[in-house]
């Protein structure tokens, strides 16, 4: 059943996301081919133009988030909900399908962003295409993408929870539910970051004394002892070959924890506490 749901959910959302990706790539292409002309321009026009193009890309990112919101909301809580909720499919399976599709589109949006940047580098800076990705994908970029991935899981799960809560039996008036959902989303998001920050700093104080990282390690079996904790991060060093990985394990674990809680709560609400009016 999950595969069938995925097929229909992907079909439902594909058109919008593919169109948005195409627009983002087009903007990047325009930025790249006009970069010389823009650099020779004088006055405020250049700033206005750059601002418009940057806003275009930021707008695409915001539109992607709005699309994920609408995808979930329309599936369950518009008239289509009468079809979704009366399918002989478990609520958990339906929720899993929505999460998988949303995360897939988030990864797609990240890929589009990477390709857009690559286009600008290749065309505007004259870098060879084969050299672009090794330059872009240094370990720090990869770790940042990993952090973004965990953040996205938590944010999407939290978004789903708030939308579901707004349509639960706990609110007699839909508008109260929606306002509570928005406040809850903002408050929980803020709380999540504060907790991570405090936790990271606290753990850093506890562990920083124990870090002992030496250079010149080349063998994998001698590599593991060099794993340490620094400022709440998993640190892996291999200096001669330039390996420096900082994985924010506490923040990412906290994000996964929040996501798991939000998913469990959403599943419970969908199963027991949602009413379509």
């Amino acid at each position: 059943m999950l595969c069938r749901l995925l097929k229909h959910d992907f079909t439902y959302s594909a058109k919008t996301f593919l169109a948005m990706g195409a627009i983002a790539i087009a903007i990047a292409f325009i930025m790249a081919i006009t970069s010389d002309a823009i650099n020779q321009m004088e006055g405020d026009f250049i700033y206005v133009l750059m601002m418009v193009l940057m806003l275009g890309i930021v707008g695409m990112a915001i539109a992607a988030i709005v699309q994920i919101f609408q995808f979930y909301h329309r599936s369950f809580f518009s008239h289509s909900g009468y079809l979704q909720f009366t399918l002989p499919v478990r609520r958990g399976t339906q929720l899993a399908s929505k999460l998988i599709v949303s995360m897939a589109w988030f990864l797609y949006a990240l890929t589009v962003a990477v390709v857009a940047i690559a286009i600008i580098i290749v065309i505007a800076d004259g870098v060879e295409f084969r050299d672009v990705f090794p330059t872009m994908f240094n370990t720090q970029t990869l770790v940042t993408l990993l952090d973004l991935f965990f953040l996205a899981i938590a944010a999407i799960a939290l978004m789903f929870f708030c939308i579901t809560l707004a349509h639960s039996v706990f609110f007699n008036k839909r508008i109260h539910g929606i306002i509570s959902g928005i406040i809850g989303f903002l408050y929980t998001g803020l709380a999540m970051w504060v907790v991570n920050l405090l936790q990271g700093r606290y753990l850093a104080r506890e562990t920083i004394e124990r870090i002992d990282i030496n250079g010149g390690i080349t063998a994998w079996d001698r590599y593991w002892p060099q794993v340490g904790l620094e400022y709440g991060r998993l640190v892996v060093y291999e200096n001669e070959f330039g390996w420096h990985i900082f994985i924010d394990i506490y923040t990412n674990a906290a994000m996964l924890g929040f996501a798991a809680l939000a998913i469990a709560a959403t599943w419970y609400l969908l199963k027991k506490r949602v009413s379509l009016r």
């Binding site: 009468y82 079809l83 009366t86």
Partner: peptide
């Protein structure tokens, strides 16, 4: 879920 396998439902709104 089990009951939904046995019921064919036409709601009062356009659900497709």
């Amino acid at each position: 879920v089990a009951a939904n396998e046995n019921i064919s439902y036409l709601p009062d709104v356009s659900h497709i």
